[in-house]
Design a protein around this nucleic acid. Structure first.
Lengths: 217, 217
DNA sequence: GTCTATAATTTGATAGAC
DNA sequence: GTCTATCAAATTATAGAC
């Protein structure tokens, strides 16, 4: 049944998966426009024709990549935002989750920002992995919960008044932007890989207190 | 000397300028890789051959665009960071300057992040307009001054200790990221142009206090 | 399923008339 | 300086053998 040879060709879904992984690498590195099917084929160590056999066209392949990568950004935040825990703990968890995620795939923010900038029609794909399929539907309950929490804290005099939207955008800005702007930091501050890593670890310690402090009444 | 006709062709440097403006529009919209010379020609209302007459190649044209747009981001910040004014005033000015600049060219952050992500070799061009030509050289004095100020504030017990790098990155994150992530905000929070503008104006009011408060001891 | 060879298309760039 | 027509190169996509 299974053929045995010197260099055995991959069985079952392995080739397709390898192509998809190679495509992720190349699309994130070059962007959808700059990526070449040939480079993806080489990265996957297969022939270019095979890409079309499995994914039909560059367009479809890039969609698959975008869905698998960008679609993983929002579910995490939604889960934490809507959780039944105090605000300060949400801050801690969000900072930690985002910095950890970004550190593992540091080029992801640049890729997503770049793709959405040039292909706004892909925005709906951001929700691929969200239950129900409509992002705003999935976010709304989480935002409402967060908004009530923030209002309650403000009424109790424990926190300055701030809208849920501003709160979230501030937090995401502080966590994600340094990764998106990494090339600029390299140029401006001379951050090589090592310095950048240390810079991020410093942020992991400082950011929760920075954000809590910013919201003190 | 000057020829008069039904539709007079542009004189002197007007055509070249129009091409450059058109190129800015298209390159920012599509990215360097996605931009088409034909689209630029149409946007400038001239023939495609004329682009090459004035700028020789797509590569050179894209460099001119990048220099003129991205090269304007850093000089502003350097000037303010190095100024002889209190920290709190630097915060106010930086927030105001950046939000105003970004509001005028809201796609610039996405474009710059995207370009640097895919063409890191362009990083040096970021400094085009900086005296001396070396960005880190131009930034260093400003950063040193800022670092001393921050240290003095901390010693006097008026501010929490924070490095100049973290201080600046926090500030830039809060100002720039919302523009870079605009498509995401549209999807996640339903921000149309009008809501987004109001959201930014709200930030203009809130951010200086947010940042000052974050740094309270 | 995977390959080689090639078709079809897109696109940056140039030649040459006006 | 500006245009039309065209070339040359790059790149996606397909046909067909194995």
């Amino acid at each position: 049944m299974v053929k045995e040879k010197g260099t055995p060709p991959a069985r079952d879904g392995a080739t397709e998966q390898r192509i998809l992984e190679a495509a992720k690498t190349v699309f994130i590195r070059r962007g959808t426009g700059g990526a070449r099917m040939q480079e993806i084929a080489e990265e996957a160590d297969v022939n270019q024709a095979l890409l079309h056999y499995y994914f039909r066209s560059k367009e479809r392949l890039s969609e698959a990549v975008f869905r698998e990568t960008a679609g993983r950004m929002f579910p995490a935040i939604i889960q934490i935002l809507g959780a039944d825990i105090p605000i300060v703990e949400k801050i801690d968890r969000l900072v930690d989750t985002y910095l950890t995620t970004m550190s593992r795939t540091p080029f992801l923010p640049g890729y997503i920002i770049s793709e959405l900038h040039h292909h706004p029609e892909r925005i709906p794909q951001l929700l691929g992995n969200v239950a129900g399929g409509d992002l705003s539907d999935a976010l709304r309950p989480a935002f409402e919960k967060l908004g009530k929490q923030l209002a309650a804290e403000a009424r109790a005099g424990r926190m300055r008044r701030i809208s849920a939207a501003q709160f979230v955008v501030n937090l995401l800005s502080l966590c994600i932007f340094p990764f998106a702007a990494r090339p600029m930091l390299r140029a401006a501050l001379g951050f090589d890989d090592d310095k950048f890593t240390k810079f991020i670890e410093q942020r992991r310690k400082e950011l929760p207190r920075y954000i809590r402090s910013a919201l003190r009444p």
